[in-house]
Amino acid sequence: MRSRPFGRSGRSVGEIGFGAWAIGDAWGRVDDDEAVAALHAALDAGVDFIDTADVYGDGHSERLIARVLKERGGARPFVATKAGRRLPQQTVAGYSEENLNAFIDRSLRNLDTDSLDLVQLHCPPTDLYYHPEAFERMERLVEQGKIRQYGVSVERVEEALKAIEYPGVVSVQIVFNMFRLRPAERLFRQAQERGVAIIARVPLASGLLSGKFTHDTRFENTDHRQFNRHGEAFDVGETFSGVPYEVGLAAVERIRPLVSGDATMAQLALRWILMFDAVTVVIPGARNPRQALANVAAADLPPLSDEVMEAVARIYEEDIKRYVHARW
């Protein structure tokens, strides 16, 4: 696995990580034994970056990660978590020192560690980025040794651009995939100039870019691809990247001919993200060992040709841009 510098943190991580939302909740039924096996398979294959959050299964994802790391022993991978979405309502006032300390203490217990590698403010309200005191509170958590570094997980490019003005922000996590190109236009260059790591989430557009879904695909009621189609539970951009399902299916059929050799469409989508030097790590999810190993194998694909990159950009311009570009 090739590694990339994690911004100015002084650490490097493998370019394919493990996104642990799907082993927590909101993706249908979770089989803990399969989830644990997926984590072991990913780590055995060289993955050294895991991304989770305190709200994924109300801490279940964090606790599964702690279980696997205890079983393995030895050096721990880089584990990033998030804080803030436990608030009953998203307000700037909710990101108080008292609340942040409570969130961090809970994640420390869940992950069974004395200090958290990275804590990301978890898609807070836009106005928070204009309150320096919130970031000063994160600095104090670093000084106390509870966290080593902090970053942000954002919905919108504009939020990321404001966040990286704060010198302590070492990373930005943002939706970036073949259906969400705007970060490459507005954010990536500035992030590189400031030494900020980019964590690319929702890399397969909630599975659309796997090429496995059809008009007849049905999702469980506990799966956000069913209950958040119109943003009923959280930002609709987290579900199918905000692209209407039928529109996404049609665009996928235009992308499908770009897949070559033994690669899968999902691997093509992951390799496409890795073509952007500003991206530090991409975090596809996996709920079983087969998915985990397939994700890792995407890093072994050769660089994509200019023709493929241009074709993806053309499909975005013609089919997708009008639905997402101005919103996120």
Rank of each mutant, 00 (worst) to 15 (best):
E238V: 13
W21L: 13
S3N: 08
V312W: 01
L39F: 05
T217A: 01
I164C: 04
L270H: 06
E15S: 12
L208Q: 03
G57P: 12
P183F: 05
A286E: 03
V252A: 00
I16F: 04
E238G: 13
N288K: 15
G46F: 05
R11L: 14
R29T: 14
Q267A: 07
P284E: 02
F213H: 12
I104E: 06
F227W: 09
Q120G: 06
R189D: 07
D306F: 12
A53N: 03
C123T: 15
Y166L: 07
H131N: 15
S206F: 07
G59V: 06
P88A: 05
P244R: 00
T214A: 02
N99W: 14
S3L: 09
D223M: 08
K212M: 11
W272P: 08
Y130N: 15
E139P: 13
R218H: 14
Y166K: 07
A41K: 04
D117V: 10
V324P: 02
A233C: 11
R85F: 13
R63D: 01
G10F: 14
E62W: 09
P289I: 07
R229Y: 12
F188N: 02
N110V: 10
F219W: 08
L258D: 03
H60A: 14
E220F: 15
V312G: 02
T113A: 10
P289C: 05
A326M: 04
R85D: 00
T91C: 05
K212S: 14
L204P: 01
R186K: 09
P132E: 01
M138S: 10
W27A: 03
G248M: 01
G248R: 00
K321H: 08
G19S: 06
V259Y: 08
T126L: 10
V79I: 02
E34L: 10
L270F: 04
P302Y: 14
